[in-house]
Protein backbone atom coordinates (compact mmCIF):
# COMPACT_ATOMS: atom_id res chain seq x y z
CA UNK A 1 0.00 0.00 0.00
CA UNK A 2 2.76 2.41 0.99
CA UNK A 3 5.04 3.11 -1.96
CA UNK A 4 7.87 5.31 -0.58
CA UNK A 5 10.92 4.22 1.37
CA UNK A 6 10.42 2.96 4.87
CA UNK A 7 12.73 3.23 7.84
CA UNK A 8 12.34 1.94 11.36
CA UNK A 9 14.18 3.33 14.38
CA UNK A 10 14.93 1.69 17.73
CA UNK A 11 16.75 3.00 20.79
CA UNK A 12 19.84 1.21 22.05
CA UNK A 13 17.91 0.43 25.27
CA UNK A 14 15.08 -1.32 23.42
CA UNK A 15 17.54 -3.06 21.13
CA UNK A 16 19.31 -4.45 24.21
CA UNK A 17 15.93 -5.72 25.51
CA UNK A 18 15.22 -7.41 22.19
CA UNK A 19 18.65 -9.02 22.08
CA UNK A 20 18.41 -10.16 25.71
CA UNK A 21 15.11 -11.83 24.83
CA UNK A 22 16.78 -13.67 21.96
CA UNK A 23 19.65 -14.80 24.18
CA UNK A 24 17.25 -15.90 26.95
CA UNK A 25 15.24 -18.11 24.62
CA UNK A 26 18.27 -19.50 22.76
CA UNK A 27 18.40 -22.11 21.23
CA UNK A 28 14.70 -21.45 20.64
CA UNK A 29 13.36 -18.57 18.60
CA UNK A 30 12.01 -15.62 20.54
CA UNK A 31 9.21 -13.39 19.27
CA UNK A 32 7.45 -10.21 20.23
CA UNK A 33 5.46 -7.20 19.09
CA UNK A 34 6.75 -3.70 18.33
CA UNK A 35 4.53 -0.72 19.18
CA UNK A 36 5.32 2.81 18.17
CA UNK A 37 4.51 5.76 15.97
CA UNK A 38 4.64 6.31 12.23
CA UNK A 39 5.41 9.55 10.44
CA UNK A 40 4.74 9.97 6.74
CA UNK A 41 6.75 12.64 4.94
CA UNK A 42 4.12 14.06 2.58
CA UNK A 43 6.75 15.51 0.23
CA UNK A 44 8.90 12.44 -0.26
CA UNK A 45 6.31 9.76 0.58
CA UNK A 46 8.84 8.20 2.95
CA UNK A 47 7.53 6.52 6.08
CA UNK A 48 9.48 6.54 9.35
CA UNK A 49 8.45 4.23 12.18
CA UNK A 50 9.71 4.74 15.69
CA UNK A 51 9.59 1.78 18.05
CA UNK A 52 8.47 2.97 21.48
CA UNK A 53 7.71 -0.30 23.23
CA UNK A 54 8.45 -3.98 22.77
CA UNK A 55 6.07 -6.65 24.03
CA UNK A 56 7.77 -10.06 24.37
CA UNK A 57 5.38 -12.89 23.48
CA UNK A 58 5.70 -16.60 24.25
CA UNK A 59 6.59 -18.73 21.25
CA UNK A 60 3.65 -21.11 20.92
CA UNK A 61 4.88 -23.07 17.92
CA UNK A 62 4.21 -26.78 18.35
CA UNK A 63 5.93 -29.45 16.31
CA UNK A 64 2.63 -30.74 14.99
CA UNK A 65 1.75 -27.29 13.66
CA UNK A 66 3.18 -27.80 10.25
CA UNK A 67 6.41 -29.42 9.21
CA UNK A 68 8.11 -31.33 12.01
CA UNK A 69 10.41 -28.49 13.05
CA UNK A 70 10.42 -27.28 16.63
CA UNK A 71 10.95 -23.89 18.32
CA UNK A 72 14.63 -23.92 17.39
CA UNK A 73 13.51 -23.19 13.85
CA UNK A 74 9.97 -21.84 14.12
CA UNK A 75 7.83 -19.40 16.07
CA UNK A 76 4.10 -18.83 16.29
CA UNK A 77 2.03 -16.23 18.09
CA UNK A 78 -1.39 -17.27 19.38
CA UNK A 79 -4.40 -15.34 18.05
CA UNK A 80 -5.30 -14.25 21.59
CA UNK A 81 -1.79 -12.84 22.06
CA UNK A 82 -2.12 -11.01 18.74
CA UNK A 83 -5.44 -9.52 19.86
CA UNK A 84 -3.89 -8.49 23.18
CA UNK A 85 -1.13 -6.48 21.48
CA UNK A 86 -3.65 -4.78 19.18
CA UNK A 87 -5.64 -3.81 22.28
CA UNK A 88 -2.47 -2.62 24.05
CA UNK A 89 -1.53 -0.47 21.06
CA UNK A 90 -4.99 1.10 20.96
CA UNK A 91 -5.01 1.76 24.71
CA UNK A 92 -1.62 3.50 24.48
CA UNK A 93 -2.55 5.38 21.30
CA UNK A 94 0.31 3.67 19.49
CA UNK A 95 0.50 1.66 16.29
CA UNK A 96 1.34 -2.04 16.07
CA UNK A 97 4.35 -1.64 13.79
CA UNK A 98 5.07 -5.34 13.38
CA UNK A 99 6.88 -8.22 15.03
CA UNK A 100 10.42 -9.28 15.82
CA UNK A 101 11.85 -12.76 16.10
CA UNK A 102 15.26 -14.37 16.42
CA UNK A 103 17.12 -16.75 14.16
CA UNK A 104 19.23 -18.94 16.46
CA UNK A 105 22.53 -19.92 14.83
CA UNK A 106 21.29 -18.58 11.53
CA UNK A 107 21.68 -15.31 9.63
CA UNK A 108 19.06 -12.53 9.84
CA UNK A 109 17.65 -13.40 6.44
CA UNK A 110 13.92 -14.03 6.02
CA UNK A 111 13.05 -17.64 5.28
CA UNK A 112 10.38 -19.17 3.07
CA UNK A 113 8.41 -19.75 6.27
CA UNK A 114 8.69 -16.08 7.20
CA UNK A 115 7.40 -15.16 3.74
CA UNK A 116 4.54 -17.63 3.91
CA UNK A 117 3.14 -15.91 7.00
CA UNK A 118 4.05 -12.32 6.07
CA UNK A 119 1.50 -9.51 6.18
CA UNK A 120 1.64 -6.23 4.28
CA UNK A 121 2.36 -2.97 6.11
CA UNK A 122 4.15 -4.68 9.02
CA UNK A 123 7.84 -4.48 9.83
CA UNK A 124 9.57 -7.77 10.55
CA UNK A 125 12.80 -7.43 12.52
CA UNK A 126 15.02 -10.51 12.54
CA UNK A 127 17.80 -10.78 15.14
CA UNK A 128 20.46 -13.39 14.49
CA UNK A 129 21.79 -15.06 17.66
CA UNK A 130 24.96 -17.07 17.11
CA UNK A 131 25.99 -19.41 19.94
CA UNK A 132 24.01 -17.28 22.39
CA UNK A 133 25.57 -14.00 21.25
CA UNK A 134 23.54 -11.34 19.35
CA UNK A 135 24.83 -10.96 15.80
CA UNK A 136 23.36 -9.08 12.81
CA UNK A 137 19.88 -7.57 12.89
CA UNK A 138 17.77 -6.46 9.94
CA UNK A 139 14.25 -5.27 9.28
CA UNK A 140 12.07 -6.24 6.35
CA UNK A 141 8.69 -5.36 4.89
CA UNK A 142 6.59 -7.39 2.50
CA UNK A 143 6.73 -6.19 -1.10
CA UNK A 144 3.29 -7.27 -2.30
CA UNK A 145 3.99 -6.70 -6.00
CA UNK A 146 7.16 -8.79 -5.94
CA UNK A 147 5.75 -11.36 -3.50
CA UNK A 148 8.89 -11.20 -1.38
CA UNK A 149 10.47 -9.28 1.47
CA UNK A 150 12.44 -6.13 0.89
CA UNK A 151 14.88 -4.71 3.45
CA UNK A 152 13.97 -1.48 5.20
CA UNK A 153 16.33 0.92 6.92
CA UNK A 154 16.98 0.12 10.58
CA UNK A 155 18.42 2.98 12.60
CA UNK A 156 19.71 2.46 16.12
CA UNK A 157 19.96 5.60 18.24
CA UNK A 158 21.48 6.20 21.66
Amino acid sequence: MHSGLTMITISQTLLSELQAHGVREFPHECCGAMLGEQTLNSETGDLTKQIIELIPIDNHWTVSDDDGFDKRRRFAIRPEDYQAVEKAAKAKNLTLLGFYHSHPDHPAIPSATDLKFAWPNFSYIIQSIITKVPAEIHSYVLDLDAGQFKPEGLEIYA
Binding site: E29, W61, R74, A76, Y82, F99, P110, S111, T113, K116
Partner: peptide, 11 residues
Protein backbone atom coordinates in the same frame (compact mmCIF):
# COMPACT_ATOMS: atom_id res chain seq x y z
CA UNK B 1 -16.35 -9.86 14.13
CA UNK B 2 -12.56 -9.93 14.56
CA UNK B 3 -10.15 -10.64 11.73
CA UNK B 4 -6.97 -11.93 13.35
CA UNK B 5 -3.84 -12.61 11.30
CA UNK B 6 -1.69 -15.65 12.06
CA UNK B 7 1.81 -14.49 12.93
CA UNK B 8 4.52 -17.10 12.56
CA UNK B 9 7.79 -17.79 10.83
CA UNK B 10 11.18 -19.30 11.34
CA UNK B 11 14.45 -20.22 9.78
Amino acid sequence: VSIVPSIAGGI
